[in-house]
């Protein structure tokens, strides 16, 4: 009469008294020995191909799943750990584009303009006497305008005409300028025509066809549009 072994969780031994009477009860050999009974039982009822798995699982003390279990999906907020991108609402909450109004003076941004002029000079290889080369003109489409002194030459909104300042921020639809009066103005691109001068060349930007984020403008292929009307 052996005590049930620790690893025999599937079966338990017959009671001691039954075992003593085994011969009289004419119990088969394998019934007396639990593990032998188990393997004969498995051999009788489990398909041969699954037998090895079952036996291995038994030996390896693994749990064999008899039904397929679909793992529960974890909520998306918990799925990705660590670094993840902020959505638009969170980005706005972070408020990284806000600048304190005290710092928005025209004078503090004049060096930015100077920097921009140097950048444009090298980008376009400007010479006041000669006309701008064709490829230089195309580079104007993809140039960065932060620091440029833009003037609204024409606009559908009369109050915007004449607004001029240094570009602080370019978004998809607007330009944020700081004017000489230290006013931060947000000018919509779609309804305005802008001009600036560079080394003897006057450049006119038709805002209606410029409604793209600066990052997108670099890779965008521009197609000729029907009209340059406001």
């Amino acid at each position: 009469m052996s005590t049930p072994t620790q690893d025999s969780a599937v079966y338990s031994e017959l009671p001691a008294g039954v075992k003593r009477q085994a011969t009289q009860l004419k119990l088969a050999d394998d019934v007396r020995d639990g593990s032998a009974y188990l393997s004969s039982f498995l051999r009788r009822h489990v398909a041969p191909r699954n037998l090895a798995t079952a036996a291995a699982a038994n030996d390896a003390h693994q749990v064999v799943l008899l039904d397929t279990v679909v793992p529960k999906k974890r909520p998306s907020s918990l799925q990705k750990k660590g670094r993840r991108q902020l959505n638009a609402r969170e980005r706005r909450g972070v408020d990284c584009f806000a600048a304190s109004t005290a710092r928005q003076t025209y004078r503090t941004h004049v060096p930015l303009h100077t920097l921009w002029r140097g950048y444009m000079r090298s980008l376009l290889q400007l010479e006041p006497s000669r006309a701008l080369a064709a490829d230089a003109q195309h580079r104007l489409l993809k140039a960065d305008y932060h620091g440029c002194v833009l003037t609204v030459a024409r606009s559908r909104c009369p109050s915007l005409v004449g607004v001029a300042g240094i570009v602080l921020q370019e978004t998809r639809c607007t330009w944020r300028l700081v004017t000489r009066e230290d006013r931060l103005v947000t000018v919509p691109k779609a309804t305005c025509v802008f001009t600036f001068e560079l080394e003897g060349h006057v450049v006119t930007l038709y805002g209606k066809h410029f409604v793209h984020r600066p990052a997108d403008r670099c890779s965008k292929k521009f197609k000729s549009k029907a009209t340059i009307d406001l």
Partner: peptide
């Protein structure tokens, strides 16, 4: 240029349009 930008020489700018590049 692709109907987005037009470039001219400053000398071609008319008197009444000079204010556009004053700033």
């Amino acid at each position: 240029v692709k109907s987005v930008i037009s470039v001219r020489s400053s000398s071609e700018l008319k008197a009444e349009d000079q204010w556009t590049v004053e700033a």
